[in-house]
């Protein structure tokens, strides 16, 4: 099963894609992905219910978050109401180790994204701040990467023994599915996704050449 683990909809301030159009696009272009995870910036979208849309399009649509820390941006999978009270999702000054700890305490998992990117990627800060504790997975393929950002992510992950996921980081409809993550097992719910991530049963893939 292949999921794009990093997408944004119009719920994000810089997102321009409607979720129904993502679905329509995936089916019209016959993209080789089985679903998407919406990772809206600095928030968790409690109100939207995409279950009918998912069913109508035979796609998995899950919701997560992208928060900001001193090491850059971090995807959080398995967000609960209680976790949103544990740290300020809207802040741009969260502490990465606190986010990781809070996620773990609430049955979620935190994954630094586009770690090879200047300013907003983890490896841009490790020389000055040191290697953060608790990271297990980083995003090694990001659909919006430029220059050698993915290679920096891959090299850094290999050096630290991190596992890698992939996500398109799409903000517009036609960018969805550029990178994704292949899982050994079926993923139907966020609990399934968090369990698969914690078990390490996945592989990052890039589909940028299509």
């Amino acid at each position: 099963m292949i999921l794009d683990l990093h997408t944004h909809s119009i719920k994000s301030d810089d997102g321009r894609a409607k979720v129904e159009n993502y679905c329509q696009w995936i089916r019209a272009r016959e993209l080789p992905i089985d679903g998407i995870v919406l990772t809206e910036h600095r928030q968790f979208d409690f109100e939207s219910d995409y279950s009918a849309l998912a069913k109508a399009n035979d796609l998995v649509i899950l919701k997560a978050s992208e928060v900001e820390t001193e090491y850059g941006h971090v995807l959080v999978y398995g967000v609960t109401e209680a976790l949103t009270q544990a740290f300020d999702f809207a802040s741009i000054n969260n502490v990465l180790e606190d986010v990781i700890q809070a996620a773990n305490d609430h049955g979620a998992i935190a994954v630094p994204c586009h770690p090879g990117r200047p300013k907003v990627g983890m490896f841009a800060h490790t020389e000055a701040l040191g290697m953060p504790q608790g990271v297990q997975i980083v995003e090694v393929y990001n659909g919006g990467s430029r220059d050698d950002e993915d290679q920096i992510a891959l090299d850094g992950a290999a050096a630290q023994g991190y596992l890698g996921i992939g996500g398109s980081d799409s903000h517009i409809v036609s960018h969805v599915g550029r990178c994704a993550t292949q899982f050994q097992d079926d993923i139907a719910t966020m609990d399934d996704l968090v369990a698969a991530l914690k078990a390490g049963n996945f592989e990052a893939i890039t589909l940028k050449t299509r």
Binding site: R16, G144, I172, V173, H175
Partner: peptide, 29 residues
């Protein structure tokens, strides 16, 4: 690329991407 059509409103939405020769997105909208 065309990503939405509203025949009733007579509108079409288009995704736009400016990319360099390395296929890196510089501008999107």
């Amino acid at each position: 690329v065309v990503t939405d059509i509203d025949p009733d409103a007579g509108t079409v939405e288009i995704d736009l991407t400016v990319a360099n020769t390395k296929q890196e997105t510089r501008v999107f909208g």
